[in-house]
Simulated assay, not measured.
Amino acid sequence: MTSHMPVTRRDLLKLGAAGAATAALAARPATATEGRFDLTGSSSPLIWKKDLYDQTVLQSFACDNVHGHIYTLQLRNGTGQNAAGNLCLTKLGLTGTVLGHMYLMGFGHGVQLGVEPSGSSAYLWTETDGVTENGSARGSQLARFRFADGQTLDTASPALTKYKPIATADNTTCAIDPSRNRLIMRYRSEGAFRFAVYSLPALKAGTVSALFDIAQPSGLGVFQGYAAYGDFLYLLTGEAYSDANPAPGNTYITCLDLRTGGQVQRELTEAGKSLDYREPEGMAIQIAAGRPRLCLGLASGVEKARKASIFYKSAMI
């Protein structure tokens, strides 16, 4: 039998203080921890089947852990947007409510996204200067720009600051590790994909010396996104449900050690397995109440009415 005690004014004050402390922790930047995420741990929903600003498939997302926002990338509505590299950037609240958007013309495919909180807003890091290849545009360098609701940017916009730390790189995207303030760049050079890690402040100051540079392992499947926390990199691969790929699908998360390039763990994830279509799309690190979460995105719904869901793992090893 459960006993129900009356709630006193002192109890309410305690609850209020606890809530304030939790809010303060949520707004505090993460600090790097030893260890890594346990990929066998359970997955929990953060947002479930939410509309983005446009109705196309979610491509990637990133979390603003200071202001409590999520930013997503998708192809812009309409035919020919893939080849043109035209993207829609949506700003969401943590419950999935649309708070604003931008259009990015000619940027690329939106495979990954980084967010850098700044003051009362945030700067976004994306691919830019998309080059068409096999019917799809892929960015050839990186761009940093401040979020401005309703604005449309093209690749010549003065609002962009561009970076190309590896001159020979093409097909370039990036993510940001909030625990160590590092930028992780996935790039292709001489036909092979690699990951280079930079101090974010040093990169912005013009230093292009990588802290780590490791190869992307072969044979992982269709690449769909990545995120880094501390010394470990997490890769998302897989395809949408189909007759050849029925539920629970072929979505895997692979963990690499950034210091050695070695594979540490690889696990099938059944997060959101009841979704229709269910295509894995994007990864990010969220900080909730001072603790890290490894998030992965899933697209669902029918064509021209796609939905976005995000799940997370929080267990650490």
Rank of each mutant, 00 (worst) to 15 (best):
V302Q: 13
E279W: 02
G191P: 11
E127G: 13
E279C: 01
K204R: 15
D177F: 00
D170T: 15
D177R: 04
K162V: 05
H67Y: 02
Q216D: 12
V222Q: 14
N171L: 08
A137V: 04
Q141T: 05
Q286E: 14
A299N: 07
V264G: 08
T2C: 01
A143I: 02
F107P: 14
A215M: 12
R259E: 11
T128N: 06
K304I: 03
D231C: 02
R36M: 06
P117M: 07
M5G: 03
G135H: 05
A17T: 12
D243C: 01
G85M: 02
L153R: 00
T173E: 13
A32S: 12
L235T: 04
S44N: 11
I285S: 01
I317H: 14
T2V: 15
D243Q: 10
H67F: 03
S179W: 01
H67M: 06
P178N: 06
T260G: 06
L233K: 13
E303T: 14
G221I: 01
L142A: 03
Q59G: 04
V7P: 01
K204L: 15
D154K: 00
A210N: 07
G262K: 10
V264K: 08
F195M: 09
L104I: 10
L73D: 10
F107N: 02
G219T: 08
R28E: 12
T31P: 00
A271I: 07
A137P: 11
